[in-house]
Design a binder for these strands. Structure first.
Length: 1111
RNA sequence: GGGGGAGUAGCUCAAUCGGUCAGAGCUGCGGGCUUAUAUCCCGCCGGUUCCAGGUUCGAGUCCUGGCUCCCCUACCA
């Protein structure tokens, strides 16, 4: 027997119950065992940053990851189910610094690098545990570590990283120091999620870098780079774009007095006054026109095209020259007295002068550009080309270094006002105004970036050829990594397809990959830069390092490859033999995530395993940013190591916003925490919202949207609750198996066959959509089916399931609905793992012990349901539904309630092939509540024959004749031929170019749609009126029962007082039967009975009821 | 600055190869639903498909120009 079902489900409580049940029954482990060794489907997880609790936006991606993996598991495919955590990088450091109250790198050095790195690892373990708990709550089935075990390791790591610990791995216990066990997380002997801080991950990146070096692609660049003064590190091109923000800076115009032209000055514009101390030149455009203007006693040079925007007050132009003639003019710099400037200029015997630069324009400023090669990337390039001296004025923290007089030690960006007033006093100032522009900020801490002269390490991405890609020769591709990556991109399916173009665009435009960061926690770059000879070595792994070590190995032994221990090891330079230390830089974190197609698939330890699971069939992430981050890093690393694609299909989805369309932000009140969402709306509701979102559009997430999703699931719940309630009342249980055989025994066989056909079509269609990574398509099909099931099948079948129905028919109805619900439960299992399981547990497990004890252990349903398909019957039922809609429309117009029976309905059906027409007519008759349905044809006075011209078929052929033909068809001016062809306006259309349809004759009250014409008989006989009254009475009694809070099977005594003409009497016994009345009295009810008044055609009637028996 | 995408009802979104009448849901109003459903159904209100041209028998859809928004990309001081 089924367990009773509440009409008001508590989804959240059900989800918690199922999480417990799955854990107890080891359902997931059994699923994995069931599929082990089968054909593989390889999903590769993009690592989630283990730095904070998971947000609802993560739940979007994790819903996709889970549902596609579950779908493939139902196909019987073997999967790895490995989650990944992104563990290394500045974002972790920034948070640990914040917790410790640090403000600069000096604080970290004073605190101790070893302890700082350990705290970073501890933070990762803390949030890996947290995110694991949250993911499990979401129903995300992965090979999770026990969160408590992760926290235990964290605590042990904090207490003493060197202590021995034993943990349980998949192949038995593993014993090592805590530090090394943490370093082995995710590896085969330890199991669970992969962690990018693992030894193997770091080691394989070393191998990758060594391979790059072997090919000559690693180099050290000396360049002016964007620099974050808070983090004390440069930012790569990938990171730069994340942080552009609108900002207001000073737009400062200064004058540089010309040394050889007394009284004359250059006018120069800058938005970074702090860089003026590093000025070495002023650039003009060779072909631009420059003018000398007089303002009072002053003479200024500037570009002619900038006069209006740059000058303040009246002026007179006194001279004009092309920029080329200005070149070489000497001028007095704004900070010439500073020792650093004197030193830089003195060494090269240099003086400030005007130089030519073809990048100079007139759109902004004065057309004369302040050049400080130590403070700007393009300035540096120009300076290098012209051999100008370079002045690097600031240190890691953004403070002026020694030699800048009163500026030294002060923070460069904060000192703008002091610099301006200083310039004013010394006569260099001309004008100041606010200037709004987009300026790069540090994407982690939000600090505005400065440009600073630094050494960083790069991987060369290879030349960009100045020709279309299809003209690049194979030899040229072999010489340029970026083109090799592009070839790999061609092999991949990009969803949505614009991803393909976007990735290629990035590859064509990207510059070399800056891989170094002057920080503490992260991949230790294995670069050993020899000061003695200037050559450098790149070590390809821990073993190689051990072999090459000449000192410090003992200090490193037993530690993960992190700072500071790895820094102890020195090797002998391969060129000159001198001892060399590792550069202290750590790596770009995208190296960590990019190597996972190799490190997590045991590329080195188990090549056979690797070749089975590589490339991944599927990866998915939110695409903002990832085309130049994770997607790119994997492509680059896979191309270098294998020159093949690391994944076959990539599915990207957009961004999650609050319900108001703005980014979620706590202070805006539109943010929803994952935990709150899970415990208030339930994760299945959340998953339904995500699965039915358009992935390439942003999703607006909020409580109202959740309510809509919940309502949809409630409809399904109600069908299920109805079924169980009545199956229990009727004592129905399935006989042995779920079987369609009972269906044909029922009186409503066509209806039953129809819903089963729809269930089969839904399973088939949803499977096709899921196989194509289209969750939205699958949910749309499911939604339609739920609607069919609820508003059509159940609506028409309710009577059949009540007591008193024909027993065989009743069994057929139960059997059908049971089978349909189970098919649906299996179809929605990947998307709604909880709701589907709740249904399955009751519909199957509680009554058929021989079947799998979880819906998630069943196979995808199409094999079982394919034979249920009857497309012609589905088409036929669609016609019936349209006809009933039309009848209801007509009733509405005529003011006749549906419960008022009518004598007749006339119906014309379209000329198409329809299955089970008799059953269809009966459905229409019952639903339209008429005594008889009469089919009408051409001969009827109610309809005409019309012709619908199928435009897509004939459009091209008819061309300009179309308007005339269409007009004639509309007016009925055509001639039908016996073979089905039609002549209209002299054009003959073949039978398959038109559809002959019934159309209403003018002047009749009819409704029509797509060849279906419905007419109702609106005349009411006394008998019909009485029957309508009886139904109205019955409905009122049922309402009253509900008001009285009676159970479905409570029996009553009924009073019906009034309705004096006696027309009701003939129906009272059937009313009594329907309302479970043992006794019907025709007199006034006692005072204590529950009563109401019903307005009937025959007059007002007073009804009352009271439970009978022991109630 | 360069490239891509989008613009459809008050809101969120549909509309197959260009096919003649642009549809759903939400919101609002009216009606209905003979005991699953605080649910659903029917109807009404609501549209210059961003604007202006063009191609075509026919344009939400294709082309050109403009406007607005989003994304990607870029060294502009």
């Amino acid at each position: 027997m089924f367990r009773p079902v509440t009409a008001k489900p508590d989804f959240v409580a059900q989800e918690h119950d199922l999480l417990r049940a799955w854990a107890e029954r080891r359902t997931f482990a059994r699923l994995r065992a069931q599929n082990a060794g089968n054909e593989r489907w390889s999903f590769l997880d993009g690592p989630i940053t283990a730095n904070n609790p998971m947000g609802v936006h993560h739940a979007w991606g994790r819903t996709y990851k889970d549902l596609f993996q579950r779908y493939h598991a139902m196909l019987g495919q073997d999967e790895r189910f490995q989650n990944g955590f992104d563990c290394q990088g500045l974002w972790v450091e920034v948070n640990v610094e914040r917790d410790l109250g640090f403000t600069s790198k000096r604080d970290i050095e004073a605190f101790g690098i070893a302890e700082f790195v350990s705290l970073c690892k501890q933070r990762v373990l803390t949030f890996a545990a947290r995110q694991t708990e949250q993911s499990i709550r979401l129903g995300y089935w992965m090979d999770w570590n026990d969160p408590a075990e992760l926290l235990r390791l964290r605590d042990l790591l904090k207490a003493d990283p060197a202590q021995q610990v034993t943990i349980e791995g998949p192949n038995g216990p593993v014993t090592d120091t805590v530090e090394m066990v943490v370093g082995r997380l995710g590896m085969p002997d330890v199991g669970g999620s992969y962690f990018t801080f693992s030894n193997e991950n770091n080691d394989l990146i070393w191998a990758f870098l060594a391979e790059c070096h072997r090919r000559g692609w690693i180099y050290r660049g000396h360049d002016t780079m964007p620099w974050c003064p808070r983090c004390g590190t440069g930012l790569s091109q990938m990171e730069l774009n994340e942080g552009y923000q609108d900002r207001e800076d000073p737009g400062l115009t200064v004058r540089f007095p010309l040394l050889d032209r007394p009284g004359e000055s250059l006018l120069v514009w800058t938005t970074t006054p702090w860089t003026l101390a590093a000025n070495v030149a002023a650039a003009v455009g060779e072909d631009l026109q420059y003018v000398k203007v007089r303002q009072g006693d002053d003479l200024y040079w500037l570009a002619k095209g900038t006069l209006r925007q740059a000058l303040r007050g009246p002026f007179t132009v006194v001279e004009e020259r092309p920029g080329a003639q200005l070149a070489g003019w000497r001028y007095a710099g704004p900070f010439d007295g500073l020792p650093a400037v004197e030193r830089a200029f003195g060494e090269g015997a240099y003086e400030h002068r005007v130089v030519l630069w073809d990048e100079v324009g007139e759109d902004e400023g004065t057309g004369i550009v302040h050049i400080a090669p130590g403070c700007g990337a393009e300035d540096f390039q120009l300076g290098t080309a012209l051999g100008l001296p370079v002045i690097g004025p600031i240190d890691e923290d953004g403070r002026y270094v020694e030699g800048f007089g009163w500026l030294s030690g002060r923070e460069a960006p904060a000192i703008t006002e002091a610099i301006i007033s200083d310039l004013e006093q010394r006569g260099f100032f001309y004008h100041l105004e606010a200037y709004a522009h987009r300026y790069p900020h540090c994407w982690r801490c939000g600090t505005p970036l400065l440009f600073r002269l630094v050494d960083e390490w790069y991987i060369s991405m290879g030349e960009v050829y100045d020709k279309p890609r299809d003209q690049v020769t194979p030899a040229e591709v072999d010489a340029s990594l970026r083109y090799q990556i592009m070839d790999v991109v061609d092999e991949i399916r990009w969803i949505p397809d614009f991803g393909y173009e976007r990735e290629l665009d990035w590859l064509l435009n990207m510059r070399d990959w800056m891989i170094s960061k002057k920080r503490y926690y992260g991949l230790a770059l294995p670069i050993y830069d020899c000061r003695a000879c200037g050559r450098f070595d790149v070590i390809g792994g821990r073993q190689e390092l051990r072999a090459r070590a000449i000192e410090g190995w003992d200090a490193f032994e037993g530690h993960t490859p992190h700072r500071p221990f790895v820094d102890q090891v020195r090797i002998a330079c391969s060129s000159c033999g001198e001892p060399v230390s590792r550069i202290t830089d750590v790596g770009n974190p995208w190296l960590d995530a990019g190597i996972v197609p190799f490190s997590t698939l045991h590329y080195r330890e188990d090549p056979e395993y690797w070749s089975k699971w590589f490339p991944a069939d599927f990866v998915t992430e939110s695409f903002p940013g990832q085309f130049r981050n994770w997607f790119y890093a994997m492509l680059a690393m896979s191309t270098v190591l294998r020159r093949e694609a690391p994944y076959k299909a990539l599915f990207g989805y957009a961004t999650l916003f609050g319900e108001d369309g703005r980014p979620m932000h706590k202070s805006w009140g539109n943010a929803i925490e994952f935990d709150e969402a899970a415990e208030r709306m339930g994760v299945d509701v959340m998953r339904w919202m995500y699965a039915s979102a358009r992935p390439d559009d942003n999703i607006l997430f909020g409580w109202h949207a959740a309510d809509e999703a919940r309502r949809e699931l409630l409809v399904l719940w109600n069908v299920y609750a109805f079924f169980v309630t009545y199956a229990r009342l009727g004592g129905w249980v399935p006989e042995g198996q779920i079987d369609r055989a009972t269906v044909d025994a029922g009186a409503a066989a066509a209806l039953d066959r129809w819903i089963l056909s729809r269930a089969a079509a839904t399973a088939e269609g949803a499977g096709e959509r899921l196989a194509d990574f289209d969750a939205l398509g699958a949910t749309r099909l499911v939604s339609t089916f739920i609607d069919d099931l609820s508003t059509w099948y159940l609506r028409l079948s309710r009577r059949r399931m009540r007591s008193g129905a024909d027993p065989a028919d009743r069994r057929a109805a139960f059997g059908t609905l049971h089978a349909a619900l189970i098919a649906l439960s299996r179809t929605i299992a990947p998307i709604l793992p909880f709701l589907s399981e709740t249904l399955y547990q009751n519909l199957v497990v509680s009554v058929i012990p021989t079947l799998p004890d979880s819906v998630h252990l069943t196979s995808w349903p199409t094999d079982d349901t394919a034979s249920w398909r009857e497309p012609a019957l589905e088409a036929s039922m669609a016609v019936a539904r349209s006809a009933v809609d039309l009848a209801r429309t007509l009733r509405g117009q005529a003011g006749l309630k549906t419960r008022q029976p009518l004598a007749r309905l006339w119906l014309a059906l379209p000329d198409r092939d329809l299955a089970d027409v008799d059953a269809l007519l009966e459905v229409i008759r019952a639903e339209a509540n008429v005594k008889a349905v009469e089919r009408i044809g051409d001969e009827s006075e109610l309809v005409d024959r019309g012709v619908k011209v199928l435009l897509p078929k004939v459009g091209k052929r008819l061309g300009s004749r179309i308007p005339a033909v269409m007009a004639a068809a509309r007016d009925g001016r055509f001639e039908l031929h016996p073979d089905g062809s039609v002549t209209i306006e002299g054009e003959t259309l073949a039978a398959d170019e038109v559809e002959v349809q019934a159309t209403p004759r003018p002047g009749t009250a009819v409704a029509h749609h797509d060849g279906i014409v419905v007419v109702i008989d609106t005349s009411l006989t006394p008998e019909l009126r009485a029957e309508g009254d009886a139904r109205e009475l019955q409905r009122a009694i049922q309402d009253l029962r509900k008001d009285a809070g009676l159970e479905l099977d409570d029996r009553i005594t009924l009073w019906v007082h009034g309705g004096a003409d006696g027309s009701l009497d003939a129906y009272l016994s059937s009313v009594a039967a329907e309302t479970l009345a043992d006794d019907v009295r025709r007199d006034a009810a006692p005072e204590d009975a529950i009563a109401a008044t019903v307005r009937l055609d025959a007059g007002d009637v007073r009804i009352a009821l009271r439970p009978t028996g022991g109630a």
